[in-house]
């Protein structure tokens, strides 16, 4: 079963790479028409360029080469034909990871806490406040909340820097305190989904027969919550947390644009606008692999944390 999951994940990544490659192939124009711009009418130049960039070989061959490279970490060259993609992407990936980890460190514990609190105090003041906030966080577009926060915290109060001016290659430590506002916005947005999920799962578990039984067995309230209710209520949250993490690592384009943060998301937009397709392909592959891996990790974690699943695979 475990092996099956891993294999399925692998299959998904393969299909993604196929989709990415085929998608780019099917688009009108290629790297050369783009590179040459208005000179592309010149047949000779075009042919020369295609020869230089190896575009004349059958797509299958190039796909095989591309995937081979990707597996060994060599993502090839960008559309200008000189820069190595791995160097461009590397810095951005580091910055995106930095942002994602900061947001996770704030958002996930907060979301779990809020979810549990509003589930336990269902329909009472803490729940009403948290649930209303969650609705706002889920519905208001990120660029709106980001814009409003900049307006209040940066423009009016002047507490935090509103945009990031640090260059992409700078070490992680130099991103403080500029990173704080984007982290606040991201945690706010990601918090909402996880919190709602946890809340509804806590409510279900608190109404379950085994929680009633624990109460009637005389287990003190908090002991009941921590021993009997929460371990079961938090299980289904694993998958939502995974989806959120995948979303965070997948480049949070809008936020990065609003705060001028040099992460993968902005690189993606810039590359798409410049039609720097090799870079787009590489980013897509990285992000998709992260998605698959995080979800795989969530499945495995669920399997380990859920005694039903665990015993199913261990005791047989």
């Amino acid at each position: 079963m475990l092996i099956r999951r891993v294999l399925l994940g692998g299959v998904t990544v393969c299909i993604v790479s196929l989709i990415i490659f085929a998608g780019v192939e099917m688009l009108p124009g290629d790297a050369c028409t783009q590179f040459l711009g208005e000179y592309q009418a010149d047949e000779e130049l075009l042919a020369q360029c295609r020869k230089d960039l190896d575009l004349n070989r059958p797509a299958i061959d190039r796909f095989a080469e591309w995937t081979q490279g990707a597996i060994t970490g060599d993502l090839g060259l960008a559309a200008d034909g000189t820069t190595k993609i791995s160097t461009i992407v590397g810095d951005r990936l580091k910055n995106s990871l930095l942002l994602a980890f900061c947001a996770m460190a704030v958002g996930i514990p907060l979301a779990l806490l809020l979810g549990v609190v509003s589930g336990l105090w269902r329909d009472r003041l803490p729940d009403i406040i948290a649930s209303t906030l969650a609705i706002f966080a889920m519905t208001i577009p990120e660029f709106v909340s980001a814009t409003l926060l900049i307006l209040v915290l940066s423009v009016w109060l002047g507490w935090l820097p509103g945009i990031v001016l640090t260059s992409a290659a700078a070490p992680a430590s130099e991103f403080f305190p500029e990173i704080l506002l984007p982290v606040i916005v991201l945690s706010f947005v990601m918090c909402a989904h996880i919190m709602r999920m946890v809340r509804s799962s806590v409510i279900d578990v608190m109404a379950s027969d085994y929680v009633q039984m624990a109460t009637l067995k005389g287990v003190p309230y908090w002991q009941m919550v921590f021993r009997h209710a929460l371990p079961n209520a938090l299980l289904p949250a694993i998958n939502v947390v995974a989806l959120t993490i995948a979303w965070l690592l997948g480049g949070v384009v809008v936020i990065e644009v609003v705060f001028n943060y040099p992460g993968l998301g902005r690189l993606m937009i810039d590359s798409i606008s410049d039609r720097n397709l090799p870079v787009v392909q590489s980013i897509a592959l990285i992000v998709a692999s992260v998605y698959v891996c995080v979800n795989l990790a969530a499945d495995l974690l669920t399997m380990i944390a859920n005694p039903k699943l665990r015993t199913m695979y261990m005791r047989k």
Partner: peptide, 22 residues
Amino acid sequence: MRIVDAFLSLPWILKMLVLIVT
């Protein structure tokens, strides 16, 4: 389902922007 998974694993904005830019 694998194909659906594959599509879901790509960020929405990338999928859409590629088409829109083109």
